[in-house]
Amino acid sequence: MTGPRVAVAGVHGHGASHVRNVARLAAAGRAELVGVADPRPTEGVRAFDSLEALLAATDVDVVIISTPIQTHVPLAELAMRAGADVLLEKPPTASLAEFEALSAVVAETGRACQVGFQAQASEATLKLADLVAAGQLGEIRGISAVGKWVRTAKYFQRARWAGKRRLDGVDVVDGAVTNPLAHATAAALLLDRSTGVDDVRSVETELYRANPIESDDTSTVRIVTARGTTILIAVTLCAEEHLEPAVIVHGTEGDAVLEYASDRIGETKYGRADLLENLLAHRADPAVPLYVPLAATGGFTRVVEAVRVAEPPREIPDELIRWEGEGPERRPIVLDVEGWIDRASDELALFSELGAPWTKPSQRES
């Protein structure tokens, strides 16, 4: 028994982990890796330079798409119209219009589209969502998500689309909020059970950058959900050191901290389901629900849309940045950004409301 026939589009970078995961399932007789699609040469597996060529050459049951953001929608549509189900990396789309278009393809074709928000399949995330819904933290004052990450110049040089808002006239929206730390926003929305496109009432954005890029690398975003919950996102890729991201639920009976990358609530570590295994189980029995169907990323996509239409990120003044490293390892550190992120999280406030120094007009702007 070989199991469903699986192909992977985009196998360099994060896509390599998908190839390894399919190989793991193949070794257990639960799937078959029938090919990969990538314009760059790939060894050790049947390879095609495009997904179109792969689908024309072989039958495929599931396509995993781990390609540049701006290619997600056309490739997912191509796969679904060819009769395949899809595991689509996050962010699923670069705009609300693209989300609506892809949702229409899902409805028309009847294919499954699972989105790669792994933290949504974490027992820790789902456990905390249940605790919140059951009122065990009391009345919820708000939810905050914090990310203090380190990214060097090499990260933004890895591909033409990295760090871009648009490329060749097409939306990319590759910023700290929408891509590397997207899981923080998605998890916060799940904890409030506000994952749908109509579950978000408003989004305020404050986008800044220390790197010489188009997109944001240091930002606060405030979401108000339809149920009235305030969700405050405070993130940077310019921290002193790379720390575990967290989502904090602020309740009248206490706070709960979810470290979604390691599946922890406080000191307790939980397990995590595999999104591809879940998709295969859903294919075998549609009564098995997907952990992250496309529809459950609508709330997140409203945040992507707000970032997309926002003014370009403001440049953080040189005097507020310390640079370290050389060449590909060069990186900016925004001075005391960790303290401002902690304050934003605690007070559910935007950087400008707290008076963070980079939010004040510089001499060049005044």
Rank of each mutant, 00 (worst) to 15 (best):
T2Q: 13
P4Y: 07
G13K: 10
N21V: 02
A26V: 06
A27T: 11
G29L: 12
A31N: 07
G35D: 12
P39Q: 05
P41H: 11
T42N: 01
G44Y: 04
R46A: 14
F48P: 03
D49T: 15
A53L: 14
D59F: 06
D59V: 14
V60R: 04
S66E: 10
P68W: 04
I69R: 06
A76S: 15
E77M: 11
V86I: 12
P91M: 09
P92W: 02
T93S: 10
A94K: 00
A104E: 14
V105M: 05
T109A: 08
F117W: 11
Q118H: 11
T125Q: 04
L126F: 00
A159L: 07
D171L: 11
V173C: 10
P180L: 04
L181I: 08
H183E: 11
L190G: 00
D192Y: 06
G196W: 05
T205Y: 08
R209L: 06
E214D: 15
S215W: 00
D216I: 02
D217F: 02
G228W: 12
E241I: 13
P245G: 03
V247T: 09
T252L: 08
E259D: 01
D263E: 12
R264A: 10
R272S: 10
R272H: 07
A273F: 07
N278S: 13
N278K: 10
R283T: 06
P286E: 08
L294N: 04
G299Y: 00
A310S: 15
P312A: 10
P312N: 11
P313L: 12
P317E: 09
L320A: 08
I321C: 09
G325S: 10
G325E: 08
R330Y: 05
L335H: 08
F351T: 02
L354H: 02
P361Y: 12
P361R: 11
S362F: 01
